[in-house]
């Protein structure tokens, strides 16, 4: 960046100047920097967003921008602050600090107007247990002020989508966990939201239902709906998200497209070696030169290298006989391990 001249940059793309460059160029004073806000296509925009519960900081000064039509993910372990962030974005939890704009508005003052255009799937289902499956959709649509006839048509379509049509007139209570989850998802779509917030949407779903949901979310995205989701599942993040942040202990550890993150924080391939119980750690030093990096997990060693097969051959040539040898491509799991030193899925 530094070799390019400021004047060329100014002519082509003035808005792409970084804060540092603008400071250096003396173009903007502090006040102008502070006065900035979301661009028109940034549906979620946060700067220094924090959430404290008493003394405990659950979200610690994060910056996020989610553009219209994008699928954006929060990936992180238990307690990372994903749900706390989602609730702030959903305009049901006031931020302790920082600035937040949803759909260009301030959730502190425009909560109802923001929520009218959101669909929310909370982490724990909070369906109306005293009502039937269909009534849950009908009354939820009413909360959004949608006329009854319109809700009825949408409810039928949504019930069909989540394959609950044959349970439509049953009470919610006896439904299975996965069915309740599907109903919660259907409910979040009753107001045809522009921005859909999904907190671990597929937890508790069987593989078939998961894939069906991914398919539906993909189609919603194609129709221009913006998706913000949290997940523990790598495959979900890789399948669905255009861009994601890895969150840990209330902070953002890294941000980018899934492939970009893998490229930046991991090697192309990973060699997984499983030795007898308790022996994994003792082999690590002897193998260090075969990989760019070694992770020692309780049950296996991970050797990060661009040539997994080559490393595997070298291991065998050294006379070692691991109980199992596996070469695989790097995944977001590896990115997470690298960034936090911990596994994402325990």
């Amino acid at each position: 960046m530094s070799v390019r001249s400021a004047s060329v940059e100014n002519m082509t793309e003035p808005s792409s100047l970084t804060v540092d460059e603008r400071r250096a160029a003396g173009e903007a004073d502090e006040a102008a920097l502070l006065a900035d806000g979301p661009r028109a296509d940034e549906l979620v925009w946060a700067r220094g967003l924090s959430k404290k519960f008493g003394e405990f900081t659950a979200v610690d000064g994060i910056d996020i921008s989610v553009r219209r039509g994008e699928a954006f993910g929060f990936l992180g372990p238990n307690g990372a602050g994903k749900s706390s962030t989602m609730r702030m974005i959903g305009a049901v939890s006031p931020a302790t600090d920082g600035r937040l704009r949803i759909l260009g508005r301030d959730p502190g003052t425009d909560g109802p107007a923001i929520r009218a255009r959101l669909g929310v799937v909370p982490q724990t289902d909070n369906l109306d247990q005293e009502l039937t499956v269909r009534e849950n959709l009908l009354i939820y649509g009413r909360y959004f002020g949608i006329p009854r006839a319109q809700i009825r048509a949408r409810a039928d379509e949504l019930l069909d989508f989540v394959q609950l049509t044959d349970r439509a007139d049953d009470l919610v209570e006896p439904l299975s966990g996965g069915m309740k989850r599907r109903l919660t998802i259907a409910r979040s779509l009753i107001n045809e939201p522009e921005l859909l917030l999904l907190d671990e949407p597929t937890t508790g779903l069987d593989p078939q239902a998961r894939h069906a949901l991914w398919d539906r979310l993909f189609r919603l995205k194609q129709r221009g709906v913006t998706l913000v989701l949290t997940t523990h599942y790598m495959d979900e993040a890789e399948q669905l998200c255009d861009r994601l942040v890895v969150m840990d202990k209330g902070r953002i550890a890294a941000e980018g497209a899934p492939a970009e993150l893998i490229g930046t924080y991991s090697t192309r391939e990973v060699l997984e070696l499983r030795f007898a119980t308790g022996e994994n750690e003792s082999h690590a030093d002897g193998l260090a030169d075969l990989a760019e990096r070694i992770e020692v997990l309780p049950d296996r060693l991970l050797l990060y290298t661009d040539d997994g097969d080559g490393a595997a051959t070298a291991v065998v040539e050294r006379g070692l006989r691991p109980a199992s040898v596996l070469v695989r491509r790097s995944s977001l799991e590896d990115v997470f391990l690298r960034l936090t030193g911990r596994s994402l899925v325990e």
Binding site: G111, P112, R115, A116, V120, N126, L127, Q129, Y143
Partner: peptide
């Protein structure tokens, strides 16, 4: 127990 209002407050209702 029913967490009814958690669901309701995610809509335009305050």
């Amino acid at each position: 127990y029913a967490k009814l209002y958690d669901a309701v407050l995610a809509t335009p209702l305050s």
